[in-house]
């Protein structure tokens, strides 16, 4: 490391690494209840992770949740952008993941056709 700019660059590269441990950023929540898993939640989860890695998204956290009582709509996937309502997508398949991420997570455009609910917190 030769200059302060080197340090800044390095910090920027590294920051995503620790971002998980700070609050903030967009959250993607995958329903991992028995129903969700039976409906293929694990595959959706893998697709989410793959997509995030592919797009090198830094400020996104992937969480899981249990059964929320809409089993027939599983796999359920929520997207929460900072200061925006929590949007729940239903019957999500791995194939839908890239669209949700591209449209909603990255560009803030809700993928209306998959939405099953919105919660303003």
């Amino acid at each position: 490391m030769k200059t302060v700019e080197d340090l800044k660059r390095m910090r920027e590269q590294l920051q995503s690494q620790n971002r998980l441990r700070h609050s903030g950023g967009t959250e993607i929540i995958v329903g991992m209840g028995t129903c969700g898993i039976a409906a293929g939640a694990r595959a959706v989860m893998s697709a989410v992770l793959e997509e995030i890695a592919k797009r090198k998204l830094e400020d996104v956290k992937v969480c899981q949740t249990g059964c929320i009582g809409m089993c027939e709509r599983e796999v359920l996937l929520d997207v929460v952008r900072p200061n925006e309502p929590r949007v729940t997508y239903g019957r999500v398949t791995p194939a839908d993941v890239s669209k949700i991420i591209a449209e909603h997570v990255v560009n803030g455009r809700i993928v209306e056709e998959l939405v099953v609910g919105k919660i303003v917190e």
Binding site: V4, L7, K8, M10, R11, L14, Q15, Q17, N18, R21
Partner: peptide
């Protein structure tokens, strides 16, 4: 909160910025 044996984790949390600031 960080791994103390990995300097990158400290840098990621803004480490050594103060040293950079005073020196420059």
């Amino acid at each position: 909160h960080i791994n103390p044996e990995i300097i990158e984790e400290y840098v990621a949390e803004g480490g050594y910025a103060a040293l950079g600031k005073v020196l420059t």
